[in-house]
Design a protein around this nucleic acid. Structure first.
Length: 481
RNA sequence: GGCCCAUUCGUCUAGUGGUUAGGACACGGCGUUCUCAACGCCGGAACAAGGGUUCGACUCCCUUAUGGGUCACCA
C-alpha cells in the first residue's frame, strides 16, 4: 500500500516549531517510502482563521524544502462532502440532530461540574421523534449533528509509538460533527479527509490521543479501515509544559529572522522526539530521509533546549562556504546600517570569515563586525595589558605605528604580518602581550575579538586599509597619553 | 476531578536481563594563545520510590509518586 502522509495545520497563526517538526516527520516518512506528502489546511473555524497564516505555512514549508506533492486542500471548500457524510451517519443512526441551545448546554455543564462528574452531553435530542426532527428542520431551527456514542463499549486502537490504547466509550462525549454554521468539526473532517485522501499514516502530536477513540468510532460507523496512528511526543518549554508562546518565541518565522538556518533548525527539531540510535548528531535532509523510521520515535516529551540549537546553528555556520555566509548575512549587515555597496566584496568576505567561528546566529553579525565600519570608542585603560606600565604600552604603540608604516600593504596577509611583527617584537626585546593586546584593542576597541593580524589582513582589502590601521594605532596613543 | 500518556546526567538521548550505565549540549579544568572564539584532552553529573519475577534487574510485572496531555458548535 502506498504511504501517504499529510500535514494538516489549521491556519490560526504562523507555523510554529511543533508544526514544523510534525511536518518534517510526515515528509520524511513519505519520502523514505517513496510515498506522497500532502498539505491539507484545516480551516473549519471561521472565527480563528488568521489572514496570511496559510501563506506563511506554505512559504515556510517551501523555505525548509519540505515540498508537498498534493494540496493545499482547503477543508472550507469541501463543506458539501462533510455534510453528505454526516447525513449518511444520521441515516445509519450513528449520529443524530441536536437542537439544544447554548444556554442549555452551559447549564448542563455547570450542573455536572457541581456534581463533580465529567461534563458530557446528556443525549437529550436523541429522544426526539422523527416527526419532531422533521418539523424543527423545516422551521429552520439551528442545529448540529452529534455522534451517537453507545455506552459500555471498549474502543481499542494501536498507536505505532505507544502501542495498544484501550478506552471505554463511557468516557467519550457525543461529539458535535457538524456545527450550526454548517461547518464540520475537526473530528468529522479529519476522518472523512484522511479516508478520502487515502492517508496511510496519521502522524500528529500526542495531544490527539484522547480524541482518537472518537475517530475510531467514526471509521467504523462509515465501515472504513483506520489508518495507522502515530502520536509524536510533545515539544516542551523549559517549564516542562507544552511549548507555547508564553515561554518565548515559537513561530518558525521568528527563529529564521534571528538568523537560525533552516537546515540547522530542521536538524535540531528532528532530534526532539526522534533519534537515529547512533552517535551521529548532524544530519542533512537527505540523511534524515535515509535514517528516519517510526520505530525510532521516542515516547516522552522533549524539552526545547536553546543552547543545543545555538550549538548546531553555530556548527552549520562554521561549515558554510564563505560566499554562502555572505549571501545569507547580507540582510543582517544591511540592518546594522552597513552600506555594502561602499566596500569591496573581498573585504566583506574577509570580515565575515573572521567572525564565522564566533557566530551562533546570523543576527549577531552586525554587532560583531561593527568595528570594521566605524572607529571604535573605548576606555583608554583597556589598552593596558595586564599590569604593564602605561609608559611601556605607549612606547610600544608609538614604535608599532612607525613600524607598520614601513610595511607594504600588499604583504598584509595574516601569516606574513604575524611573522613580521613577531620578529620585530623579538628584535626589540618587547613583551608580546604588551604589543599585541594594545594593538588589538586599538583596532577593535574590544576586550574580546579576533586577533590583530587577521584584522589587519581584512583591512588590507580596503584601498586605504593600511592608513586606517595606522590611524587607529595613533588614535590609541593619543587616548593613552 | 474522570480518562489517557510518560519517567536514564540540568537538557537531548544510547541502552531491550549480566555494561566501569555510552554519546552530545551546557558547565568546570587544562592545552594552544595577545583576548575571545574555534579546536584538542580531562572532569563532575542520571536509571523517581517501593514491592515482586529471576541466580541476576535500568531493562519484565504490580503499586505509589511526580510530570504532562485531554475532557468545546477550537484545532
Amino acid at each position: 500500500m502506498e504511504v501517504r502522509t499529510r500535514f494538516a495545520p489549521s491556519p490560526t497563526g504562523m507555523l510554529h516549531i511543533g508544526g514544523l517538526r510534525t511536518a518534517l516527520y510526515e515528509f520524511l516518512w513519505a519520502r523514505k517510502n517513496n510515498g506522497k506528502f500532502i498539505l491539507r489546511v484545516e480551516d473549519t473555524d471561521k472565527a480563528r482563521t488568521v489572514p496570511g497564516a496559510l501563506e506563511n505555512i506554505v512559504q515556510t514549508l517551501k523555505d525548509f524544502r519540505l515540498n508537498f506533492d498534493e494540496g493545499p486542500y482547503l477543508q472550507s471548500k469541501r463543506l458539501d462532502i462533510y455534510k453528505k457524510h454526516a447525513e449518511e451517519l444520521v441515516e445509519k443512526q450513528a449520529a443524530y440532530y441536536c437542537f439544544c441551545t447554548e444556554e442549555r448546554l452551559v447549564a448542563l455543564r455547570k450542573e455536572q461540574e457541581a456534581k463533580k462528574i465529567p461534563p458530557k452531553y446528556d443525549k437529550h435530542c436523541l429522544k426526539l421523534s422523527a416527526d419532531e426532527i422533521k418539523g424543527k428542520l423545516q422551521n429552520g431551527e439551528p442545529h448540529v449533528i452529534r455522534l451517537n456514542v453507545l455506552p459500555n463499549k471498549r474502543i481499542r486502537f494501536t498507536d505505532l509509538v505507544h502501542g495498544e490504547i484501550d478506552v471505554s466509550s463511557n468516557d467519550l462525549d457525543d461529539q458535535v460533527l457538524i456545527k450550526s454554521d454548517g461547518f464540520p468539526t475537526y473530528h468529522l473532517a479529519v476522518v472523512v479527509d484522511d479516508h478520502l485522501m487515502k492517508i496511510s499514516h496519521v502522524i500528529r502530536g500526542e495531544e490527539w490521543i484522547p480524541s482518537t477513540p472518537k475517530h475510531i468510532l467514526l471509521y467504523s460507523a462509515f465501515g472504513w479501515e483506520s489508518p495507522q496512528f502515530v502520536h509524536t511526543p510533545n515539544i516542551l518549554g523549559k517549564s516542562g509544559k507544552k511549548l507555547s508562546k508564553r515561554e518565548g518565541e515559537v513561530a518558525v518565522k521568528d527563529f529564521v529572522e534571528k538568523g537560525y538556518l533552516p537546515e540547522a533548525l530542521l536538524n535540531f527539531v528532528a532530534f526532539l522526539g526522534w533519534n537515529p540510535k547512533t552517535e551521529q548528531e548532524i544530519f542533512n535532509l537527505r540523511e534524515l530521509v535515509d535514517q528516519f523510521s517510526l520505530a525510532k520515535l521516542n515516547r516522552a516529551g522533549a524539552v526545547f533546549d536553546l543552547d543545543k540549537l545555538d550549538w548546531i546553528n553555530g556548527l552549520y555556520i562554521r561549515r558554510m562556504k564563505i560566499e554562502e555566509l555572505f549571501a545569507r548575512a547580507v540582510p543582517y549587515l544591511v540592518k546594522a546600517g552597513i552600506n555594502l555597496q561602499d566596500y569591496p566584496k573581498q573585504f566583506i568576505e574577509k570580515v565575515l570569515q573572521l567572525e564565522q567561528d564566533r557566530l551562533k546566529k546570523l543576527s549577531e553579525v552586525g554587532e560583531r563586525v561593527g568595528y570594521f565600519f566605524r572607529e571604535p570608542s573605548y576606555d583608554p585603560s583597556l589598552l593596558i595589558w595586564k599590569n604593564a606600565p602605561k609608559e611601556a604600552i605607549l612606547k610600544n604603540l608609538e614604535a608599532l605605528s612607525s613600524f607598520v608604516q614601513t610595511l607594504d600593504p600588499k604583504e598584509f596577509s595574516k601569516e606574513n604580518l604575524e611573522q613580521k611583527i613577531k620578529a620585530w617584537i623579538a628584535q626589540n626585546n618587547m613583551k608580546t602581550g604588551e604589543v599585541l593586546w594594545p594593538l588589538r584593542v586599538a583596532l577593535t576597541g574590544l576586550d574580546a575579538s579576533p586577533g590583530p593580524f587577521e584584522i589587519m589582513d581584512a583591512f588590507s582589502a580596503l584601498p586605504n586599509g593600511k592608513e586606517l590601521v595606522v590611524r587607529r594605532i595613533n588614535k590609541a596613543t593619543e587616548l593613552l597619553f
